[in-house]
Design a protein around this nucleic acid. Structure first.
Lengths: 141, 141
DNA sequence: CTCTTTGTAACTATACTTGTTACAGATATG
DNA sequence: CATATCTGTAACAAGTATAGTTACAAAGAG
């Protein structure tokens, strides 16, 4: 279980919240749908809260609900909210600076990485949580 | 060292090969520039060979050289050649199929994943190994 | 005060990536 | 043919990230 599935889980979590409207949803309830431990859900909700996408309430009858309407939550903002890795990683160890290629390749790859990341963000920005809800409904209709 | 840097290393390796023209390049020489073990380089070359991007020769005075001109090697083909993970992973454990969201979310995320992957491929396809070589040259000129 | 629920720390298990050693197989050269 | 060189690949060790789990402090409703 090493592949980062936080984005997938975050979309799942937010879809659950969206369907609950203004009601507080408990992490246990979401965990049952995602099929994982409530703490895993609370860890994701913690990141979504930091990004201002949800708001939580502790105590009895507490729980979490969306901080904005689903149409205003883009998949890009979800992607940025959870700590996903990059599309591809740069060199683990710095290349040999005595070699012309080793000296120049890092900055080229770094710029490319940024450009790809931007491209992914733009593509994800074309969709909102509302889109996902609609697609989920259609999928099993 | 868990982040997958094979794409970065592959681009580095191919840049080295491109600069050598039609000469065979040894894995030890490339490893010195990438600052890693020759076996790591040979593992990447093995994947690039399977993708038809390079051709290797065993034995004395053996080594590897490009199978095509740099301008015909797109970064997309390099990305596909090395076994990078996906931009985001799907659920590790299948969601609860008794929940409407759990039942529908997987296919939605899977389609989204394919679309993002396609988008990344198109962006990478805008660049070739020749572009990288030029950028590396300019970077430290 | 009591019960419920979040927030978070700490630990474990697992899996992936890289690094390393070792060796079989191929090939150029004498 | 013998030898030296280089690739290809298996096997294993080490490091690190993710997910899962337990435990508990803190907050809040009744």
């Amino acid at each position: 279980m090493a592949a980062n599935s936080q984005f997938s889980m975050a979309v799942h979590v937010l879809t659950m919240l969206a369907r609950a409207g203004d009601d507080n949803v408990k992490s246990d309830y979401i965990a049952a749908s995602v099929n994982t431990n409530p703490v895993v859900i609370r860890r994701i909700l913690s990141q979504l809260n930091a990004a201002g996408l949800v708001s939580s309430q502790t105590g009895a009858f507490g729980g979490t609900r969306l901080a904005k309407p689903p149409a205003e939550i883009s998949l890009c903002s979800i992607y940025k909210a959870v700590s996903c890795g990059e599309v591809f990683a740069l060199h683990a160890k710095s290349p040999n600076q005595d070699c012309p290629v080793g000296r120049g390749i890092e900055s080229v790859l770094c710029n490319l990485q940024k450009e790809i990341e931007k491209s992914v963000g733009e593509k994800l920005g074309q969709y909102s949580l509302a889109t996902v809800i609609e697609m989920v409904s259609v999928a099993h209709a």
